[in-house]
Amino acid sequence: MEKYYKKWFWLLILPSILLFLFIIALPFFVGTIYSFTSWRGTYFAGGSFWESFVGLENYIKAFSSERFVHALIYTSLYTLVAVAAINLVALAFALMLNNIRRGVGIYRTVFFLPNMLGGLAMGFVWQFIFQVVYTEILFSPDGLFHVEFLRFMTQDTTKALFALVIMTVWQSAGYMMLIYISGLNAIPGDLYEAAEIDGAGPVRKFFTVTLPLLMPSITIVLFLTLACQLYPSFLILQYIQPVLCNKEPYAYHLSLEK
């Protein structure tokens, strides 16, 4: 099998390379170059490419804008909270599933399912959850538990950040859980046995065996959540509730003000 992979290595990775080049690398490269010009979407303002070259002017404008800086700070704050929350919840799911024997497949499927739901469908589902289920059914004064903080989450600028985090965790944790599960499966069982013989309890085993050996998975999940989770969530929630508009990512702000 190894021989086969070696022989056809380039053919097998060619689709990925082409997709990466044309879908990611090229637009990124072109976009970066255009950011130093007065590109208007269909033409270079001022004439040719060189005539429209503005150097760092676009960046200076962006960082001089109060709205941009506000959006950037909010995006950074959201990133910190979301990445931490996704990692913790995904790891908790993975540890839980790693320790149960029955119905593992069902749980995995259930936790992973939100990942299959994308785009506006998710926006509408969460619009309903935040604005009707949370606000009127579960957490209203006449509801199951009265928790004022969990009502009108998309109508309040502070609560909105947590609304975004809840939605993102719900969608991403199942996917990240799979990476953690494969990481947990790769940890040799005899290490746990040795730890037990040495008298380590569950907490000690987690911090001295599981966590260090899970670092490669943590790195992958950390970067995946950083790279993939931010932009679409903002746009979706912005669509479902305009109060969140102030919190859209800076890239979207730029496109609006162009």
Binding site: Q127, Q131, V132, T135, Q155, I240, Q241, V243
Partner: peptide
């Protein structure tokens, strides 16, 4: 109030 800017209502 918050209810008035609730998209669901």
């Amino acid at each position: 109030g918050s209810e008035l800017i609730n998209k669901a209502n």
